[in-house]
Design a protein around this nucleic acid. Structure first.
Lengths: 199, 199
DNA sequence: GAATATAGCAACCGATCGTTCGGAAGCTAA
DNA sequence: TTAGCTTCCGAACGATCGGTTGCTATATTC
């Protein structure tokens, strides 16, 4: 029925699958992401969808990768030119808030949803999620440490504690935005960040 | 085949279903809670399981109710005799941390998982989850307000902001415990609580 | 003791799950 | 032109999903 597409078109089809898959997964979860649903949404057959990945788990991993790309594009890359240290740390957090505020993905923060969905299981998908979460927290820790060493944050700052609190602020932001639809949540998040990182 | 049980036995069967259902749901999610899986775990037929509820949604609501009962028993009821105001607010939060620390449910905080799973959908299950979350946050606000009026917290305290931060601390605790298995998380949570609520 | 009500089972329903298979269609290299 | 490669489809696979039906065996009610 459907002919072979040019290489460019093929890559485009794969991208369409992963992009739409990320949207679905951000709303329904990575398990709620169904091959049949994906096929129906894209107007193609289930075989055509799964043929690009071979396995649902591979598809899930591709979606996790895409989510990481989106996050990277929307948050860390936007603050790459901000001076390292406290300024960069503040910019990272502000970009993080803005990213959730803008509802880049319809289902809120993909990693929050995926983390709570997979935190009790094993397997490569869980490992990928935990790994990317760890990388981002490491980046936060690095900038926090630079800020401490540069005297921009108190010398006795517990960097791990600070990152813990920052993560809490963002988890709360996602929670109040998605579950309660609270429009004051971003402002609350920014106020908490000011308290943690100074003015 | 299986005979009718006495009323007491019948209630017990229902409790067994809901209890096991809560364990499964805390790990696999409310949608991952499957009637067939439940029946297999309990050594009974699917019809025997669903006969007590009629519908999976009703079963899910029963599980949500049970989760609320467990939480109520484990957290607010344990601090019922603590004097109202800041002392009670602190005790509520400490009981909350201890509840997560003890791993009362194998999958961590049920409401955190259920909230992120259902925050994008509609329906009675989502409403029940959001409602119970709202009740608990209202209880926190009440005690916080009492603490402010009693002069135990600064007069300019933004109570909504405080509850936002408290929720963030607990979400982070659940996150670091479940996804990263960080044993230092409870101590981090307690330190954050001290920062928010004083010594 | 007889009548009634009901908990639970075995079997089954249609739908959907992830996955496999053979083939049709078209691009590309020889 | 031809042979091979690849994308995608239609169809089907067994498994499982939520839910229904008919029945049996017993607890309760009279």
């Amino acid at each position: 029925m459907s002919p072979r597409k040019s290489v460019a078109e093929t890559r485009l089809t794969r991208r369409r699958i992963v992009d739409r898959g990320l949207e679905i997964a951000s709303m329904e979860g990575l398990e709620g992401l169904t091959i049949g649903r994906l096929a129906a949404d894209l107007g193609m057959s289930k075989a055509g969808v799964i043929g690009h990945f071979g396995t649902k788990e591979t598809l899930q991993l591709a979606v996790v990768d895409e989510a990481a790309d989106v996050f990277t594009r929307e948050v860390p890359e936007r603050v790459h030119d901000v001076p390292a240290g406290l300024a960069r740390l503040r910019a990272m957090c502000e970009a993080w808030v803005a990213y959730l505020e803008r509802h880049v993905l319809p289902g809120g923060c993909f990693f929050t949803a995926a983390a709570t969905e997979f935190d009790d299981r094993g397997g490569p998908v869980r490992d990928a999620i935990a790994g990317m979460s760890a990388v981002w927290q490491r980046d936060l820790r690095i900038q926090a440490r630079l800020a401490v060493h540069g005297g921009e944050l108190p010398a006795d700052t517990d960097v791990g504690q600070l990152v813990y609190d920052l993560v809490g602020v963002m988890l709360a932001l996602n929670h109040f935005l998605q579950l309660q639809g609270d429009p004051a949540a971003p402002q609350r998040a920014r106020r908490s960040l000011r308290r943690l990182l100074g003015e």
